[in-house]
Amino acid sequence: MDIKKREKDDITIFDIQGEIRRTDIAESTLHELVKDQLDLGKKHILLNFDKVEFIDSFGVGEILASYISTHNLGGQLKIARISKKLFLVFQITMLTKVLEIFDEEESALQSFLKE
């Protein structure tokens, strides 16, 4: 898994690439990276999964932990470009009712600006 960070209009965007698995050993987990940004006072987080090939339950746990941390600090965490497979899993688990998921990054960014 490779995670790159960029910023746009006060929104921190994480571009995630590859596979998010429990077995992957990375320097920092997604949740740790999000928490670092929250510590810096950045409360608008967008996770872009455009180049994610696979995500397991560990990966979903990382997304949810990031969501809770952001939410607890009054911030917003949104998701864009997830695969159909993951969207299906989110629907079955009803996470689509809690997480804000967008087809495109642009529409996600627009939604931050509207609020």
């Binding site: 397991d56 339950s57 949810l64 159909k84 497979k85 899993v89």
Partner: peptide, 26 residues
């Protein structure tokens, strides 16, 4: 091949439902 095999889907859903963070969120 574009979708999850049925057995993988079931396993993944179960694992997610068991997550502590999932219970917190939901």
């Amino acid at each position: 091949d574009d979708v999850l095999p049925e057995e993988t889907l079931d396993a993944q859903v179960r694992e997610i439902l068991d997550l502590g963070v999932y219970r917190q969120v939901m």
